[in-house]
Amino acid sequence: MDLFESELRVIEAAEELAATLGADDNHTVAAAAMDTSGVIHRAVNVYHFTGGPCAEFVVMGVAATAGAGPLVTMAAAGDGGRGLIPPCGRCRQAMLDLHPDVMVAVPGEWKPQLRPIRKLLPDTFFHPEANARRMLRFNKSYYGDVASGVKTTTIRYDDPVAVGPALFMFEDDEEHRTLEGAVTAVEHYRLDQLTPEQARLAPEASLAGLRQGLQRHYPDMPAEAHVSVVTFVLES
């Protein structure tokens, strides 16, 4: 899938900062991270033989200092024209614990790719006391329906959602609008056995239309996929 314009800006910010490096061997990697307000935070690594932090660690601290909430997108780039680089294992674990819904830019065969942080650490350990704030992502076209309370259900594939408070974030929204809410239930069904009642379909909607829409959003989803029916509410 093509990257959103906002995601490309994060990658560009990391690469632009990396291009200024090279004169000091203690600072060789740049990172950029966008928060839910659309602000892009930037930082560089601090090498030291005692274990100085990677650029991703530093940019998480910079974002926290600025009062940013959950991070939406993260990218890192190396000096000397190395371009986009994936995070190390330590950074992946920290991002998973502190920003479990962040999308991370990694180099692809032909162009950059965005991966959920959990995909970069399969079968990983989750810190039990991390207590990170969760996000629930929506296509920006759904903002009106979610904000008005018309839409209270979403169906996800290979996208784990936890019950509890969440910040509703609308991808690539020019105004970077968010809503406070909570996930109240997550139910799991096989897509080819899903009923209209289980999917919470409106009377005018059809299962065929639902499946077609999901297939467009998840091109690799098999017909017998297990999907999650997520019910949510807005905070009053």
Rank of each mutant, 00 (worst) to 15 (best):
D2T: 14
R9E: 15
E12F: 00
H27F: 04
H27S: 15
V29F: 10
T36H: 10
N45R: 07
Y47W: 15
F49I: 14
G51M: 01
G52T: 08
C54K: 08
M60Y: 02
T65Q: 15
L71V: 07
M74Q: 04
G78D: 06
D79P: 08
G81T: 11
R82P: 02
C91W: 10
R92S: 09
A94M: 11
L96H: 11
P100C: 09
D101A: 07
P107R: 11
W110E: 15
K111W: 04
L114P: 02
L114A: 02
P116C: 08
I117P: 02
P122L: 07
F125N: 01
E129G: 03
N131D: 15
N131A: 13
R134H: 11
M135S: 08
L136D: 04
N139W: 11
N139F: 13
K140F: 00
Y143F: 15
T153H: 09
P160G: 02
P160L: 14
G164V: 05
A166K: 00
A166L: 00
L167F: 06
E171N: 15
D172R: 06
R177K: 07
V183W: 02
V183E: 06
A185R: 03
E187K: 08
D192I: 11
D192V: 00
Q193N: 10
L201A: 00
L201R: 09
A202Q: 14
P203W: 13
A205I: 01
L207Q: 07
G209W: 09
Q212L: 06
Q212E: 15
G213I: 03
G213D: 12
L214A: 03
R216T: 07
H217R: 12
M221T: 09
A225H: 06
H226G: 10
V230M: 06
T231K: 09
T231D: 14
E235L: 03
